[in-house]
């Protein structure tokens, strides 16, 4: 198995506030990993560092053995927690953008998924509900044949039935040696598709474990364990 992501003593501080404190992490290909932690634990900071949207204060970060940069961005497909697409565009036009931008974008896949979710490619983004927009963005991100998918809160804005479908989209659209890192608060909804979890607390990794190990050893779901570890 190849290492897809490696963090060495990775730290990030905003002024004096430590957002991530000496993170050491190594992720292999072929896994679906949950990045879990309460608000302000550093999840989005870590994700932004991986995508080069922030510069680390200290430490190193490698993706597929390359430092963050042009080469790493070719293999990382990122779903941010906010929308960034121009609202006046039609879905079809956004797909054309993505095709231009990313060598690994698979147009057929995107149109297939749109059809399955009954989304009209001629609709403008601004006419869509929040949930539908989120679906479109996820489809765009999952239509790339990337090595590392980073999904920041992929199901937060959609209804429970659509969540099931979105998880199915995630499961059926990644290559076997690709890794998916999902950050979410909706643990109960995603925990059955995860094989590992990373618990972040105050900028530090408090636990990494296989999910079935947790269930076997602690006899509880990831959701309950989370509630226990991060009890307020």
């Amino acid at each position: 198995m190849s290492t897809i992501l490696e963090c060495k003593n990775l730290s990030k501080s905003y002024d004096k506030k430590m957002a991530l404190n000496k993170i050491n992490l190594s992720l292999e290909g072929g896994h679906i990993i949950g990045l879990l932690g309460p608000n302000g634990s550093g999840k989005t900071t870590l994700i932004k560092l991986i995508n080069g949207l922030l510069q680390p204060t200290e430490g190193e970060l490698y993706i597929n053995e390359n430092p963050v940069g042009v080469e790493s961005k070719k293999v990382v497909s990122y779903l941010p927690d906010q929308t960034y697409l121009e609202a006046n565009l039609k879905v079809r036009e956004v797909i054309d953008y993505f095709k231009d931008f990313y060598e690994d974008f698979d147009e057929t896949r995107a149109y297939d998924m749109l059809a399955k979710l009954h989304i009209n490619p001629s609709d403008k983004l601004k006419t869509m509900s929040k949930g539908t927009k989120e679906k479109v963005q996820l489809i765009l991100v999952m239509s790339r044949r990337a090595k590392l998918y980073i999904l920041d809160e992929p199901i937060a804005g959609v209804d429970p039935a659509a969540r099931d479908y979105i998880l199915e989209v995630i499961l059926s659209n990644y290559d076997e040696d690709a890794t998916i890192l999902i950050s979410t608060h909706l643990i109960a909804d995603v925990e059955n598709i995860l094989d590992e979890v990373i618990f972040l607390k105050n900028g530090e990794i408090v636990m990494t474990s296989s999910v079935d190990d947790i269930r076997e050893k602690q006899g509880t779901s990831i959701d309950s364990l989370f509630r226990e570890v991060f009890k307020c």
Binding site: G30, H31, I32, D164, L167, E168, L171, S172, E176, N192, I193, L194, D195, D212
Partner: peptide, 17 residues
């Protein structure tokens, strides 16, 4: 494995195991 994993809505690695 992939089809079964999708049907069960679980991770393919778990199905494999």
């Amino acid at each position: 494995v992939r089809d079964l994993a999708q049907e069960a809505a679980v991770n393919p690695n778990t199905m494999q195991k």
